[in-house]
């Protein structure tokens, strides 16, 4: 990892009115690195990764993603978002389009690919998330797990350099979490750079290069998973792990 990092956050902050969602957060993510962000709800995890593709604008510090310094400058952020895929907790598929159209609309309208190329890309990634047979259905006809896999494929169709996951399994029924995590593990094996906000500690243990633990808008601890799960260096991380792992 001698290259310059893909994401460099240097002392960034973000407030919503009086509430400080992020305070003095510094984090670098390198090419092909998998970073899992965890922490209690309201700790700023989602806000942090939403800053990484400009869905939230940080108001202090500097943030560079893929060589672009993020500010409110619209065209550059738009350019950047093509290279930074995002998967949402609530899937956010486009309900008026079929699955295939959901995957094709970005390549067609944003990347300006021709229809045949866009469809080939879409089918390739639909295959990758193992639901090629659902291509012509509407999102509402799919299960939650299938919808989230379509959402992952939609992001991948833009051929991003980084993938951001904002609690991708939190809105799913328990029996569907596995199928989504499987797809994410496979994605990690292809060398994709990933930042994942999740409470799925099994997944974290399996793929994470580094664990980031946040609380009250600050990064409290950054450790390799081995250390983090067996011997967390901070009391707060230990308390958090006890709470989510004890049952």
């Amino acid at each position: 990892m001698t290259q310059t990092p893909v994401i460099v956050a240097d002392a960034i902050g973000k407030s919503f009115g009086d509430f400080a969602a992020l305070t003095d957060v510094s984090l670098s993510v390198h090419q092909s690195e998998r970073v899992v962000v965890c922490g209690p709800s309201g700790s700023g995890k989602s806000t942090l990764i939403r800053c990484f593709n400009g869905l939230e604008n940080h108001d202090a510090g500097t943030l560079t993603v893929d060589g672009v310094a993020l500010s409110q400058d619209a065209p550059e952020i738009r350019q950047l978002r093509q290279d930074v895929g995002m998967v949402f907790q609530q899937f956010n598929l486009f309900p008026h389009l079929t699955v295939l159209e959901n995957l094709m609309i970005g390549p067609l309208k944003v990347r300006k690919l021709d229809r045949a190329a866009a469809e080939a890309t879409a089918r390739k990634y639909l295959e990758r998330v193992r639901i090629p047979e659902q291509a012509d259905k509407r999102p509402a006809q799919l299960s939650g797990g299938q919808q989230q896999r379509v959402a992952i494929a939609r992001a991948l169709c833009m051929e991003p350099r980084v993938m951001l996951f904002d609690e991708p399994t939190s809105a799913l029924d328990p029996e569907m979490i596995g199928e989504v995590l499987d797809v994410m593990v496979e994605l990690a094996q292809t060398g994709m750079t990933m930042v994942v906000v999740t409470h799925e500690m099994g997944f974290a243990r399996k793929v994470a290069d580094r664990m980031v633990f946040m609380e009250a808008g600050r990064i409290v601890e950054i450790s390799p998973p081995d250390t983090f799960f067996t011997a967390p260096q901070t009391d707060r991380a230990r308390v958090f792990l006890d709470q989510i792992l004890e049952h």
Binding site: L55, R78, Q79, M86, F88, K109
Partner: peptide
């Protein structure tokens, strides 16, 4: 709102 965010996240203006 999620529809706006999804559209933005694939680089749409």
């Amino acid at each position: 709102v999620g529809q706006w965010e999804a559209a933005a996240s694939i680089g749409m203006s």
